[in-house]
């Protein structure tokens, strides 16, 4: 059974369909890259699966309609990293990360278990935030904030990660680390990743599948290699993508 299956997903803002009839399936152990120019509907797909945007069509997680999942149940299975983070109050990094464990003990009387402590500690460590755990999130840089929410997501320990531009705000070192971290995470059985990326080289290096979007419609859906056929890419981005990439990389020889 497929881990995630979207059937005829459509999201409308007013009359305009931002996502128009997108269907895809995702098997365990796969990493699906959502690729396309700005406004192609990549983030909207993420929001729809996260139940943050009203949609028509259906999304199934392990054969069950996600609309039927209770919120805590959904959070234990599907974890989402949003594109933008804003924080209003001076919570510490640790407090934000600890909230990732909410779905395991949502009641006010439920106590922190050792598993909670362990996953919070591990998440802080993996994202390199242990030295900052006491610091207020209001004083963090964009990259540190991005890593804080990534740590929260890892503490949440879902089966499926949905990452909307995970390397947003991150410098090269952390871009590399985050992608290495996620591909390591993916090695355990029963897990899968969907991510929105703009960097085509990263997509090609780490992805196993690709969904290429243009104007809310799917242009290509399948193994990652197929998404890089020159005609398809050039059509989606309306430019000679291969030529541009070669020129950029050529500078480094």
């Amino acid at each position: 059974m497929a881990m995630l299956e979207a059937r005829d997903l459509t999201v409308r803002y007013g009359e305009r369909a931002v996502v128009d009839g997108v269907s895809f399936t995702l098997e365990e152990g796969r990493w699906l890259m959502l690729i396309g120019p700005n406004g192609a509907g990549k983030s909207t797909i993420v929001n729809a699966v996260a139940q943050s945007a009203p949609y028509t069509g259906e999304v199934f997680f392990r054969g069950e309609n996600v609309r039927r999942y209770r919120p805590t149940e959904l959070a234990r299975n599907i974890g989402i990293l949003s594109q933008n983070h804003s924080v209003g109050y001076s919570f510490t990094v640790e407090e934000v990360v600890r909230l990732g464990r909410y779905s395991y003990a949502p009641g006010i009387f439920s106590r922190h278990s050792d598993a909670d402590e362990e996953s919070v500690e591990r998440a802080l460590e993996l994202t390199g935030l242990t030295p900052l755990m006491e610091q207020s999130v209001l004083t963090l840089s964009g990259g540190e904030l991005q890593r804080t929410f990534l740590a929260q997501l890892l503490a949440q320990n879902p089966k499926l990660l949905i990452l909307d531009e995970p390397t947003n705000h991150l410098d090269l070192v952390y871009q590399k680390q985050v992608f290495a971290l996620i591909s390591e995470w993916l090695r355990e059985p029963g897990r899968a990743v969907i991510s929105v990326v703009h960097d085509l080289s990263l997509a090609r290096a780490y992805g196993t599948d690709a969904l290429l979007l243009s104007g809310g419609r799917p242009v290509y859906c399948g193994p990652i290699e197929g998404a890089f056929a020159p005609e398809t890419l050039n059509e989606v981005y309306s430019m000679d993508v291969g030529e541009w990439m070669r020129r950029m990389l050529g500078q480094w020889r």
Partner: peptide
């Protein structure tokens, strides 16, 4: 209200974040 202290923490960080970590918003 006191029983919802943790949920209010989640909302104080952000409503979308609260939804993502499993709060019945």
């Amino acid at each position: 209200i006191l029983f919802h202290a943790r949920e209010l923490n989640a909302f104080a960080i952000g409503e979308d974040n609260a939804r993502h970590i499993g709060v019945n918003v």
